[in-house]
Design a protein around this nucleic acid. Structure first.
Length: 458
RNA sequence: GAGGGUGUAGCUCAGCCGGUUAGAGCAUCAGAUUGUGGUUCUGAGGGUCGUGGGUUCGAGCCCCAUCAUUCUCCCCA
């Protein structure tokens, strides 16, 4: 016998957890639909070459690769051995692995758009809720298998899309009851910063370092910048940029003074300014914060970037996204710009659990349990049971004839709020005993009155 | 990829300086209670102390290795 275990970083979801997860997904899906997004699903696995090189060197290492079948075929022995040799030298080999589990939902979506651009109605708005896999080392709030819920618009460069996506975040988290901070920035501003201090090729180094500002502080960021090969002069210019403070308007003016002389900087600031004006609330103020330190890891972002932080809990971001000018260009179909956002369901779950934000009603599945008091008693309640089910009322009958104690405890464990007891006495009188387990009250009713009673109660 | 923590009953954990037969709470099962649950009382079952080696008269405890798990860093949701 082997000890049953789970692969590292994966989880089973027991019924109560699935209920809560589905509650989150239901709300997010509802909001997506309300904004005109359409569902899409893609396979769990993609061709390895579809994924490689899209997430940076670090990302490539975290892609789960699937071993080819038929490696034990003697006829292919030399080919396979040679393939393994290549794998051990760090270069991939189709002889050993040509498929991999999807790492996110954006690249498979880009692949889908590139394959079907002739058939799709643009702008194409899709949402996708599926698991993704990363060969990462698991830790708090990080798993090797987790769900992403993405919504993307492709085929439109309009900033109106950004405004809609921002509102999707605001709507969804309001409905979930999670206070959030929505942070925005623009990758063009970061690019302009890199251009001004260190050169465009330092963009990644700069973003990785400044992204950590709120975590490690200004001094450490400066240290990291010099470690990454920036001069003191360049670092201090970045320091000035990072020190920009004030409300959204002030920050924009200050950034303009610093980076407005470059075309990219100017463009980025204009984009944010437009978005800010558009999202501005009637009573003034903005439903987001402008965070110049926000960088986001993925390299394909080229414009607006989003990040959502949950208020009052110590957990990483629970959502993020951004604009990309040319994602499908990687697959030979240039000129389709897009923008998208993602919800981190697993972390949202953790936040809601920590805050106690799930409605209690989620725990009730079955509304009514019929006790089993013997075969003739079962025959007596059977038509009633079926008729309730036809009316959409979830109910069940205890399948074994056993003592009351057991049947009561079953109902209690499953959080079934009501039980029906019908024995020889009730059969003789054509009645039912209905007990409410939460109030511990009991009443006797005619056997045809049950449905009405339940419909009244709900 | 780098560095810590933890592995003892189904679950959460205690176990003194290395010393006789390894404990508690919860859970489970049975009974008090053959048509009324939750509270209570009584009793029972349940252990290769992660695994392998070593030190010792003696190891749950010390040492080494290994596996699992968890956390931090890198990176990310």
């Amino acid at each position: 016998m082997i000890k049953p275990t789970l692969p590292q970083g994966t989880r089973d979801f027991p019924p109560s957890v699935v209920r809560k997860r589905q509650y989150i997904l239901r709300i997010i899906r509802e909001v997506f639909e309300r904004y005109g997004f359409q569902p899409l699903e893609t396979p769990a696995m993609e061709n390895l070459e579809t994924l490689l090189g899209k997430y940076g060197d670090e990302g490539d290492k975290l892609i789960f690769r699937i071993l080819n079948n038929g490696l034990d075929n003697p006829a292919k022995r030399e080919q396979v051995l040679d393939g393994f040799r290549q794998v051990m030298e760090g270069t991939g080999s189709k002889a050993v692995t040509e498929r991999a589990l999807r790492y996110d939902l954006t690249i498979p979506f880009a692949r889908f758009v590139a394959m079907n651009h002739g058939q799709l109605q643009f702008p194409f708005k899709r949402y996708q809720i599926q698991p993704v896999w990363r060969a990462d080392r698991p830790q708090k709030g990080r798993y090797r298998e987790f769900y992403q819920c993405d919504a993307d618009v492709v085929g439109s460069a309009s900033l109106l899309n950004e405004a809609e996506l921002a509102n999707i975040y605001l709507d969804a988290f309001r409905m979930l009851g999670i206070p959030i901070e929505l942070r925005l920035n623009n990758r063009k501003i970061l690019a302009a910063l890199a251009e001004a201090c260190g050169g465009a090729e330092k963009l990644t180094d700069i973003t990785v370092a400044i992204d950590k500002l709120d975590k490690i502080g200004m001094e450490k960021v400066m240290e990291e910048l010099s470690q990454r090969g920036l001069s003191d002069e360049q670092s201090s210019a970045i320091g000035m940029y990072l020190s920009i403070s004030g409300d959204v308007d002030e920050k924009l003016s200050k950034a303009e003074a610093l980076l407005g002389h470059t075309p990219q900087g100017q463009k980025g600031i204009e984009e944010i300014r437009w978005l800010a004006n558009f999202l501005k609330k009637e009573e003034g103020g903005y439903p987001f914060t402008l965070d110049f330190t926000l960088a986001r890891g993925l390299n394909y972002y080229t414009g607006t970037i989003f990040e959502v932080k949950a208020g009052g809990v110590q957990i990483g971001s629970i959502g993020g996204g951004g604009r990309y000018d040319d994602l499908t260009g990687l697959f030979g179909v240039p000129g389709i710009p897009g923008v998208g956002i993602s919800f981190g369901v697993d972390r949202i779950y953790d936040v809601m659990e920590e805050r106690g934000s799930f409605p209690e009603s989620l725990e009730v599945g079955t509304k009514l349990l019929f006790f089993n008091l013997g075969e003739s008693e079962c025959r007596y309640v059977w038509p009633i049971l079926q008729s309730l089910r036809e009316s959409g009322i979830a109910c069940e009958i205890y399948p074994e004839q056993t003592k009351f104690d057991k049947q009561f405890k079953y109902a209690e464990k499953k959080k079934i709020p009501m039980v029906v007891i019908a024995g020889s006495e009730e059969i003789a009188n054509g009645t039912l005993k209905v007990k409410n387990l939460t109030t511990s009250t009991q009443q006797t009713i005619g056997k045809d009155e049950l449905k009405e009673l339940l419909l009244q109660a709900s």
